[in-house]
Design a binder for these strands. Structure first.
Lengths: 215, 215
DNA sequence: CACTTGTCCTGTCATGCCGTCAGCTTACCG
DNA sequence: CGGTAAGCTGACGGCATGACAGGACAAGTG
């Protein structure tokens, strides 16, 4: 899939090269967590990695390019999100369980990768195709599963005909992502993390099934 | 309230000064719409405004400071969002109407100010207090109204006791904001704007009242 | 062991933006 | 018309960028 890791000038990277490349990515990742995206400079990343800016530019065209790389790695790990919905039921008590675990897993994933996801979100919102394709790649698994669930319930006549499964699923996923990014904001509205989760799960369940969960 | 507009070095700005200051803000605003936040440079803004970088620094400490200014202006205009919910009912057909108009007004507001809101969102997500206070200021009117609506229904026993009004309201607002920022993303999931709105309104109505709307 | 080859890193340099200051011009007022 | 404060800019040191050529290094070869 990835083929071979190459430098900007076309050489293939060996063991040592890949190591420093990865080190640069790790340092950039740390940097993104600790300082605003706008202020992340190549020279700082290089210093932190114990190397020079020139080395950075050997492996990446610019900061954006490196961020895309990190995001790509995260996206493949993010495939784990699929399991949150694989073979789950939305009926009765099991449905409530499904909603809760989805919320839990989703928030956890976002918390772990918040720094990069922030940047991906920004890039996508700014209309950069590379970023929003990446965002789709990350969210697709969850989104498709949710859309399927809605479509299925719709086929059974348990959800109104004029509901658009993709729109509902997309909106719910967007909600989860947004809430995850702004968790801190909620605390200043007097809402604690622990209270947030069940309410999110409730909204998800309502959105998918159109009914309150049976607990 | 605003007192007096002052330059960085403490002078009070007169007519002419305020004009160039505003021109700089306008140009920055345009700039944010057309190029990624990370690439917006002071010198470009100054050039676009037909002035010099030094002038920019006379009125703003840096790009971030100027963005805060723009966002502040937008926040006061955003008070108009309150009207979307002032004295509205969530019962019966009126409830469906309320939900639809909220979604409509919200998306419209976001579409108009997407460039600045993107940056505010980023700043807030990065933990900058100034930005997330601003974000709260913008969203508070809608959020509080929604939370009140839920609390009221709860008092009447029409919504479960264990629902947290602030959490539900906040999540719904976050959903609206996120969907608005990524409207383009939905089109690549095959969902058109026109289809999106009623589905969002449905989710809002479900979230607030716990019931499907009567149309 | 010297030699070769290809990978890997860095010193250096031109370019351009940042952020500040002193100083010039403009407008207002008595 | 002279004084005062507002308004603007040229110029400068400092730093990040991005490109290149060349040196350091590891691994294989005779």
């Amino acid at each position: 899939m990835t083929g071979q890791v190459r430098t900007v000038d076309g050489r293939v990277a060996g063991r040592r090269g890949q190591a420093t490349r990865q080190k640069l990515l790790d340092c950039l990742s740390e940097m993104l967590s600790s300082s605003p995206y706008r202020d992340v400079k190549v020279i700082d990343v290089a210093r932190k990695a114990g190397t020079s800016p020139a080395t950075f530019y050997q492996y990446f065209p610019d900061v954006e390019g490196a961020v895309l790389e990190i995001a790509e790695q995260m996206a493949t790990e993010g495939a784990a999100l699929t399991e949150l919905l694989q073979g789950r039921s939305w009926a009765g008590k099991a449905g409530w369980q499904t909603a809760q675990e989805l919320v839990d897993g989703f928030l956890e994933f976002w918390r772990k990768n918040d720094a990069i996801l922030r940047v991906v979100d920004l890039g996508a919102a700014e209309g950069d195709k590379r970023f929003y394709k990446l965002r789709m790649k990350i969210l697709n698994s969850v989104n498709n599963s949710l859309a399927d669930a809605v479509a299925e319930l719709q086929a059974k006549g348990r959800v109104d005909k004029d509901v658009n499964p993709a729109a509902v699923a997309g909106s719910l996923v967007a909600m989860l992502a947004a809430v995850a990014s702004h968790q801190k904001g909620f605390s200043s509205w007097g809402v604690k993390q622990a209270e947030l989760k069940p309410n999110l799960a409730l909204l998800v369940h309502l959105g998918i099934t159109g009914r309150k969960p049976t607990k």
